[in-house]
Design a protein around this nucleic acid. Sequence first.
DNA 1: GCCAACGTTGGC
DNA 2: GCCAACGTTGGC
Length: 154
Amino acid sequence: MRHWLLKTEPSSFSFDDLWKAPRRTTGWSGVRNYQARNLLRDELKKGDRVLIYHSSTEPPAVVGEAEVVREGYPDPTQFDPRDDHFDGDSPQDAPRWFQVDVRGVRKLPREVPLAELRSAPALKKMALLQRGQRLSVQPVAESEYAAILALASK
DNA sequence: GCCAACGTTGGC
DNA sequence: GCCAACGTTGGC
């Protein structure tokens, strides 16, 4: 089992929205970056654990845990002209963008803000904290995942 | 609101 | 294929 981090802006979709969704499950749609697409399409597997991270909010923070319940399949929003993430150049027969389904597992007992992640020695190498890192789907080492959960229960 | 970092586009 | 211009991300 691998571990991942998914970024989202809570003003558009928050962990609470995931929690309130039917069966606490949603398609993780709208990712429009090829590197992140490749991860969603090929690497995220059923049962993988996921940290949900809120960006562009105060403070940015890891807020919850989820799990992958369906592996990569075409993101339907790319074909919906009314959707913000519509991509008219994506061929119907060879979709460009993929998503997975994730189910909320638990809200963390305490949010772990970005500043706290930065100050944790165990997270020194975490992808999220590297300079210029913007990828919205990131692998997380098992030790990093465990360290973040430990911070969340302090 | 600023701006650094990065990704994409498109002329050549 | 190069690279300047432009757009986006996302912390601060």
